[in-house]
Amino acid sequence: MALMPSLNPRIVEALYAEALVLADEVRQQFEQARRDAVDECEAADDLSNVALSCEALRTTTRVMHCLAWLLNHRAYFAGELSELQLRRHGRLIANMPPSEPDNVAMLSPRVQQLVSESERLYERIERLENAWRGEVPEGPTAIERLRQRLAASMGA
């Protein structure tokens, strides 16, 4: 577990707690926005309903990807995943599509704020991911070890 000096369990736990709170708030606020749209007879406004649905999906997906990444790292720090498993299966999805400004502009100020918070959380985790992926593992790779063994067996 010494290969992650830029990432430690406290950082992961703090981000995980933040992401859980954000996920719950996002769910509540988007659900309330849907109820408000129906109550105010805005159901006829198809464009705002589509914008709300699209941004709800983007925002919740973004937060869920953050949570998945954090859960994988929690499992690693708890000894439930090896570094190899984490490097293979614990990747953050690349190129998460950003929210569409025109859609976000149709949302309430509180929902707009949550969309922005989800984007900032994703960007923070993406920076951690990139820094962690940029770290070079100690020692030779499996291919280098195989080449060394082949060279040794051939007397080279």
Rank of each mutant, 00 (worst) to 15 (best):
D39G: 00
D46A: 14
N49M: 15
V38Q: 08
I93P: 05
L47C: 01
S99L: 10
Y122L: 13
H65W: 11
P109M: 13
L3P: 00
P140I: 03
T61Y: 10
A19P: 02
F30T: 07
R124S: 14
Q32N: 04
P101A: 12
R127A: 13
L70Y: 01
G79H: 08
A14G: 13
F77H: 06
R124G: 07
D45E: 05
S118R: 07
R34W: 14
I143K: 09
L86T: 06
R10I: 03
E25M: 05
Q112V: 11
A2K: 09
R145K: 04
Q112R: 15
E80S: 02
E123S: 13
S99K: 04
R127T: 09
E119A: 15
S82K: 02
L81I: 02
R127N: 13
A19L: 00
V21M: 06
E144P: 01
G79S: 10
P9T: 06
N130A: 15
V111I: 11
L15Y: 08
L52D: 04
P5D: 01
A37S: 15
R88Y: 04
S6H: 03
R74V: 08
E100M: 10
T60P: 08
Y16M: 15
V111M: 05
Y122N: 12
E144M: 04
P140S: 10
L57E: 10
L92P: 00
L71V: 06
E13M: 07
E100N: 12
R110K: 07
R87W: 06
D39S: 07
A2G: 11
T60G: 10
M1L: 00
A152P: 00
P97Y: 03
V50R: 08
M154I: 11
C66P: 01
V12G: 01
A131C: 12
M96T: 00
Q112T: 14
C54Y: 04
R133G: 03
H73V: 03
R62D: 02
A2Y: 05
R91A: 11
L57H: 08
R35C: 04
L121V: 14
E126G: 15
T61S: 15
A56D: 07
H65G: 06
L67K: 13
E117S: 12
L20R: 11
S53H: 11
S6G: 00
Q29N: 11
L86G: 03
V115R: 01
Q28K: 11
L7I: 05
L20N: 08
R91M: 05
R88E: 04
N49T: 14
E55V: 08
